[in-house]
């Protein structure tokens, strides 16, 4: 009762709702980059929203079924093929033994989620299945999935009676991200506050599960350029001493020393996670 990875894709990892209660050991939360898409995929197959699933990044994986089970994919616009026939995201796909499901390149968006009806047989690390690649733990042997890996499903199930169809999301190239003031918002000179909320930033090359470094105008800081190391959470925007905004994402370190000026809402984190390219602005809610 398993499936096999035929192609690993660019960076396919097991993720779930994240790892909590161990941040006092310096262990990041990890988990889904785009939480709402992952939760929709899980819901489509009847799993609880934060169940472990496969997170594909930019180029998806190809799996071969060794038993019968249903899956659903949601998130980035990646071409899905079941035995070479195109199928859609946002609805149940049922695989039988030897079926091959391939998840292609993300035409739009960046992260796509493949939820499997039934529980993946992945050991928990600190009560979570989330993969944390920098320290090589969690998920499948602490690494991304590779050709030849076999993942067991504890209770594979087939959903025959499901008519739920969720339309794919649209991924615009320009997004206004909603934010709340961060702990050091008041430490930013008022001209710099205005500049940050009126500038447009480009999503550059430096984006990953840890954080998104934005390209654009540097923000002048006041006398205070650093803080005594303090906590960070997903969505925290730090401004480096060079004035560059960095937004912390799922694998964010638990602490940092730059000014934390803004905090993205959860919805804004999900929107940002899906941006391979494009431009963003910020507004206060």
């Amino acid at each position: 009762m398993s499936f096999e990875i035929i192609k690993g894709g660019l960076m396919t990892t097991i993720q779930d709702g994240g790892r909590y209660g161990v941040q006092d050991q310096g262990i990041p939360v990890s988990g889904f980059m785009d939480e709402s898409s992952a939760q929709i995929a899980n819901s489509l197959v009847g799993n609880t929203p934060n169940s472990a699933l496969l997170e594909c990044c930019q180029v998806g994986c190809t799996i071969k079924a060794n038993t019968e089970f249903s899956v659903a994919f949601y998130g980035a616009h990646m071409e899905l093929k079941l035995n070479n026939h195109i199928v859609s995201q946002g609805k149940i796909i049922t695989l039988t033994t030897d079926d091959v499901l391939s998840i292609g390149f993300a035409q739009k968006g960046l992260y796509g989620y493949l939820a499997i009806c039934g529980q993946l047989d992945i050991p928990k690390t600190y009560d979570s299945c989330a993969t944390y690649l920098p320290a090589k733990f969690g998920g499948f042997k602490g690494r991304k999935l590779e050709k030849g890996d076999s993942i067991s499903i504890i209770n594979p199930n087939i959903l025959t009676n499901s008519f739920s169809v969720i339309k794919p999301q649209s991924f615009p190239q320009q997004v206004v991200l909603e934010t709340l003031p961060g702990p050091e918002w008041d430490k930013l000179p008022s001209e710099s506050q205005k500049q940050l909320l009126s500038s447009t930033y480009t999503i550059g090359k430096n984006i990953n599960r840890i954080g998104y470094r934005l390209e654009g105008d540097s923000i002048p800081l006041g006398n205070k350029k650093e803080i005594i190391s303090s906590g960070m959470v997903k969505g925290t925007m730090q401004i480096t001493s060079a004035g560059i905004p960095i937004i912390m994402m799922a694998d964010a370190p638990t602490s940092g020393g730059y000014l934390r000026v803004l905090n993205l809402t959860e919805r804004a984190c999900d929107q940002l996670a899906q941006m391979q390219t494009g431009k963003v602005q910020f507004c206060m809610v």
Binding site: Y20, G21, V22, Q23, V29, S229, S230, G231, V233, S255
Partner: peptide
Amino acid sequence: IKSISPAYNSITLM
């Protein structure tokens, strides 16, 4: 409370 993370002069609660 899901997480308690102390630092030099602050505590983050999730």
